[in-house]
Design a protein around this nucleic acid. Structure first.
Lengths: 96, 96
DNA sequence: TCGTTAGTTCAAAAGTTGTTTAACTATAGA
DNA sequence: TCTATAGTTAAACAACTTTTGAACTAACGA
């Protein structure tokens, strides 16, 4: 395996780990179906867990490149990082 | 969430867990690129681990519905379970 | 029947991930 | 400046996954 393939494999594994969790799938589903950005409180509400646990899951999704976060005042708005899905899992978002 | 959606979510999580591992991605890659079935020894050789560990990973892949296994004499031949990929991760196999 | 090959299973050890609680930082408004 | 709100971080713990080595089963050929 060359270096690009190694990095691609690592990226894939990070993504699959991030997707292998009910709470994180619920977050992505909410984001995808909102068709828009949502703030942490809104997302935390739909996935029914504590704010620190929600924050842990946001971080996992962010580090896998599956969501992006925009800061505005006190709030942080997150949305699907579509490019990552298109590259690694073409067609998956539409099955959500 | 209704019962079908719950089952789909569980199936997805099982699949993502199965895919979130370097050894198992290597197995799938070998199978996909062989374009054919391979026996456990051949696959174990390409993914460089003990036979008991290889067997554990085969089971994980089998239980996620990602490979199927055919027994013939002493040997077992495994191959990609294409239908599962088509249903849950359309387009993914070609990125392998 | 005996030895060999192919693969699985089991239990213990090692490693990783998810949850919880509490303490923390940063921004906003009174 | 004080208080409230939004979110992150750290530590401890429980739960789960992976690895390892040894014992096992099943099929084959001599």
């Amino acid at each position: 395996m060359n270096i690009e393939q190694l990095e691609l494999t690592e990226k894939r594994i990070k993504i699959f780990k991030a997707l292998a969790d009910e709470t994180r799938l619920a977050i992505l589903k909410a984001l995808y179906h909102s068709g828009n950005e949502l703030n942490c409180t809104e997302v935390g509400f739909t996935c029914d867990t504590s704010k620190s646990n929600a924050s842990y899951h946001f971080k996992t999704l962010r580090e896998a490149g599956l969501i992006k976060v925009r800061k505005d005042g006190q709030a942080r708005y997150m949305s699907i990082y579509k490019e990552t899905f298109d590259q690694i899992l073409p067609g998956f978002l539409d099955t959500l």
